[in-house]
């Protein structure tokens, strides 16, 4: 397990926000804005803004604010404003739309830190470059600790930043298989999911052409996942390309499978993973069942699950 959950703020998001916030500072922008789904990117943005003395405004879908109230509070504690987005479906894609609107109006003094590997160029490349520390470290540490490269890499895919960060430095290592795990929600066949690579088609959203959950009329569909951070109807365009060339296999894990993996890892390792990450754990378990014991799978533990305990407790009917 590549322990991105041990990062300050509890997820891989900080790798990206530090890089982009330093860029904002270099560009002389006193203000950063961000969109956030689960709140991890919002927290990571608020964190670095506090550290660098930047004003920080975070757009968050009103639906997401309800299910991630701890992260909302964290952002505010660090001095950021959390602006609820009531338009559209009130989730991540709408927060991104609102951040784009703000940026268009305030570009002179504002830098927009996009939290994932999607959006207009140069964001997909820039976010990938900042997140590729994950893969570089994993590659080096694999050689140091295993004496060889892993047989497989597994990462969850929402917008795709933790996955591309892990995968990118290994792309030329042809014997390293790669699996991106999307949010299967209630199951791909129900249409209630967030799996554009598995069940979508190419379209244009947020300044990139990529696999999207779009209906026959070209409208963007609502996504459904127990994990707010995977709840995006698009995906970073580099993943779309990696799918098309067959370098990475994109699969999906359902809410049920993710929740089961969440509990299993907590019990078996004493590590509570984020619900997003749990999708990767779920698939890694399936993969491992079909591989011999001498094989090595590296799973990106993209975030810790403290932020999700209220969600899981409520699913269990427990009031905490």
């Amino acid at each position: 397990m590549k322990r991105e959950d041990l990062n300050h703020t509890g997820a891989h998001k900080i790798n990206n926000t530090i890089g982009q916030a330093l860029l904002a500072k270099f560009m002389g922008k006193p203000r950063i804005i961000a969109e956030t789904g689960a709140g991890q990117h919002g927290v990571a943005s608020a964190t670095i803004a506090a550290r660098l003395g930047l004003q920080c405004d975070v757009y968050m879908g009103a639906e997401d604010i309800k299910r991630q109230s701890a992260n909302v509070f964290r952002m505010k504690l660090m001095g950021a404003n959390v602006i609820p987005v009531e338009s559209g479906s009130r989730t991540l894609k709408d927060a991104l739309n609102e951040a784009l609107r703000d940026w268009a109006a305030n570009v002179d003094n504002t830098y927009y830190i996009i939290g994932t590997a999607a959006g207009p160029h140069p964001y997909p490349r820039m976010v990938r470059d900042f997140q590729s520390v994950i893969g570089r470290e994993a590659r080096q540490q694999s050689l140091e600790q295993f004496g060889r490269l892993p047989d497989a890499l597994v990462a969850c895919v929402g917008g795709g930043s933790n996955a591309i960060g892990l995968f990118h430095p290994f792309l030329h290592d042809v014997d390293v298989a790669m699996y991106g795990v999307e949010a299967g929600g209630d199951g791909l066949e129900t249409g209630r999911h967030a799996a554009p690579l598995s069940a979508g088609r190419p379209g244009i959203l947020h300044g990139n052409r990529t696999y999207l959950m779009t209906d026959d009329a070209g409208q963007i569909m609502e996504t459904h996942s127990v994990s707010a951070g995977l709840d995006y109807p698009g995906v970073g365009p580099e993943h779309s390309w990696l799918k098309d060339i067959g370098r990475v296999s994109y699969v999906a894990a359902t809410d049920t499978e993710a929740l089961e993996a969440f509990r299993r890892l907590s019990r078996m390792e004493g590590i509570i993973p984020a619900l997003e990450t749990s999708h990767a754990i779920a698939h890694a378990g399936k993969l491992a069942a079909g591989m011999s014991k001498d094989k090595i799978i590296v799973v990106n533990l993209s975030g810790r699950g403290d932020k999700d305990i209220h969600t899981v407790a409520s699913i269990d009917g427990i009031n905490i």
């Binding site: 559209g88 894609k93 991104l96 609107r101 959203l205 009329a217 963007i220």
Partner: peptide, 24 residues
């Protein structure tokens, strides 16, 4: 369009009204 990122609230709402009618 469901995601009119260049439009302010007035036109966003207009688009939502049209989409509720199923306008393609």
């Amino acid at each position: 369009f469901s995601d009119p990122s260049s439009d302010g609230t007035v036109i966003q709402l207009g688009a939502e009204r049209a989409l509720r009618q199923g306008t393609t």
